[in-house]
Design a protein around this nucleic acid. Structure first.
Length: 197
DNA sequence: ATAAGGATGATCT
DNA sequence: GATCATCCTTATA
């Protein structure tokens, strides 16, 4: 019914593939995760919110594994991460895309601009809207209502590539830390950061 | 199909 | 004041 928290108390690069195919749910809406990105907390990842240490915004990243790190971005969006590593270390996995497996009617009601069901949770900010995740959920334990998280039985087959939208240091092929399930319609289209030629 | 520009605000320098 | 872990609309092919 719920997950083994120890599986998430590992570095983000190991947890990311485990989350592909996992099902996350919140208040009756469930989705199968198909695309994620890893962000490290050991000070070696310039693209990570934790790169310059702890702050009020990223505090949840330093908390226990299996909790949520939700943050506000671009003045209008909320993005959600699954916190990993033992408490005190700040790595996390950004949820970038998934397909709704339960509660589709509710998800459609929230995502009024979605043209088709496959767009309901394709993209990190869309995913949070579909699930109804807000800033109030920052730090929430995914093992506790209204949340739920079920990890896949076995390891999934996956592909990797550069992280989307990360420019400058931390971007490009130096950091191929985006993970997705092959041939899945709910994987968001790759967009290079504007700052990279 | 891909490209470009605006919206909009917290966070950090 | 610059920088975003983005989305949506409109334009051009």
């Amino acid at each position: 019914m719920t997950f083994d928290r120890r599986l998430l108390e590992r570095p983000a690069l190991e947890v990311a593939p485990l989350l592909l195919g996992a099902v996350i749910s919140r208040a009756g809406v469930s989705l199968r995760i198909t695309e994620v990105e890893a962000y490290l907390g050991d000070g070696t990842d310039p693209g990570s919110h934790a790169f310059r240490g702890r702050s009020a915004r990223n505090a949840a990243m330093f908390g226990p594994a299996g909790h949520l790190y939700a943050y506000f971005s671009y003045g209008m969006h909320v993005c959600a991460n699954v916190v990993c590593s033992p408490e005190g270390e700040a790595s996390a996995v950004l949820l970038r895309g998934g397909e709704i497996v339960a509660g589709a009617a509710e998800a459609r009601r929230r995502r009024t601009t979605a043209k088709s069901d496959r767009d309901l949770a394709r993209g990190p900010a869309r995913l949070t809207v579909a699930l109804g995740i807000g800033l109030a959920d920052d730090g929430a334990d995914l093992a506790v209502e209204p949340f739920g998280l079920t990890l896949p039985a076995g390891p999934a087959e996956f592909l990797t590539g550069p992280r989307t939208g990360v420019g400058g240091a931390g971007g490009g092929s130096e950091y191929p830390w985006r993970f997705w399930l092959p041939d899945d319609a709910s994987v968001s289209p790759y967009r290079r950061h504007p700052k990279l030629a």
